[in-house]
């Protein structure tokens, strides 16, 4: 301890105050990164397709509109399937099945998982033990097997597939949020919230959750792609969307019967690849943007 820095209080010069410049700049930088830009553009295109496809799609997805099993040509860009339906139109309409269900599954799983996970991490004790054992039991099954079992028990159809997938996914978010909540709970700013007289509810809402949620958000974005895949897998196995619905997985099942007419299965497959990639890239970008460490250190 020396008296070296005598002048520091009075000579204290605050840096020019800007309204949090770091955060805005990092968003702009992110959008400029090719990965993220690709993710955003692809997601945007699919969103436009979902909202407007019924106005401009070249054919009806359920009608036989030409000769069966035509290879890709000027009239039928991705060819026609075994019933003479336009594959291109059906792929576009397929987005209306897969993407909303993916969003719904993830939203429900995040909601259920977060509530249970936050309760487990924040309250601890028997709540923690019960929730985590439930999660363990669920996660002990391979995702596709559990989803198949649930969907088979409830009967095929997208609604039951949705229920099955929520059951598969909630433990992931419960665990993730619980771990984060426990880590954040140790920080001194929680003690300081206690010392100013904040209630438990306020501490959870204002001081624990905002710092714990990033991991869940990033994972949810990436999992959107996984849900698209699992939906398709269930449909492929005959447990999801039922024919003649234009669902990507169901279309691949049909296409698999016609090995030499490759376009029937490849077109929905490629559509799925773009969606899964886009969500993965977005998740990556989101992780960088929301990195608490980078923002606070």
């Amino acid at each position: 301890m020396t008296v070296a820095d005598e002048s520091s209080v009075d000579d204290f010069q605050p840096q020019p105050a800007e309204p949090d410049p770091g955060r805005k700049r990092s968003w702009r930088k992110l959008v400029r990164r090719p990965q993220i830009a690709f993710g955003l553009i692809v997601c945007f295109i699919w969103l436009v397709v979902i909202l407007t496809v019924h106005w401009w799609a070249p054919y009806d997805p359920y009608e036989s509109v030409g000769d069966r099993l035509q290879p890709p040509n000027g009239d039928f860009w991705f060819g026609t399937d075994a019933l003479g339906r336009d594959v291109f139109t059906r792929v576009l309409y397929g987005a209306r099945q897969s993407l909303p269900i993916a969003v719904a599954v993830i939203a429900s799983a995040v909601l259920i998982g977060s509530v249970l996970g936050a309760a487990a991490g924040f309250l601890g004790g028997w709540v923690d033990r019960v929730v985590m054992r439930l999660a363990d039991v669920t996660m002990a099954f391979p995702a596709i097997l559990l989803a198949m079992a649930v969907a088979a028990a409830l009967g095929p159809g997208l609604k039951n597939g949705f229920i099955a997938m929520v059951i598969v996914w909630w433990p992931i978010y419960a665990r993730l949020l619980r771990a984060q909540v426990i880590a954040v709970k140790q920080r001194e700013h929680i003690e300081s919230a206690v010392s100013i007289g904040a209630t438990q509810g306020r501490i959870l809402r204002k001081h624990v959750l905002p710092l714990s949620f990033t991991g869940v958000l990033v994972n949810a974005t990436m999992d959107l792609g996984q849900v698209v895949l699992l939906t398709a897998s269930l449909s492929f196995l005959g447990l999801g969307a039922l024919p003649p619905a234009p669902e990507w997985g169901a279309m691949i099942t049909e296409g698999a019967k016609y090995f030499y007419q490759w376009w029937i299965a490849v077109a929905p497959g490629v559509a799925m690849v773009t969606v899964v990639l886009a969500f993965n890239f977005l998740g990556d970008g989101l992780r960088d943007a929301l990195d608490v460490k980078a923002a606070t250190r």
Binding site: R187, E188, H189, E191, S192, I196, A198
Partner: peptide, 30 residues
């Protein structure tokens, strides 16, 4: 909780004892 206003604490690590997601104004107003 209401008695707490009369005794407060200053912590060792000023980095960890301030909520990084709140502005200084929000922290002081809470």
């Amino acid at each position: 909780r209401s008695a707490r206003s009369k005794f407060q604490m200053v912590f060792q690590d000023p980095q960890a004892s301030l909520n990084p997601r709140m502005t200084v104004g929000e922290i002081l107003a809470e």
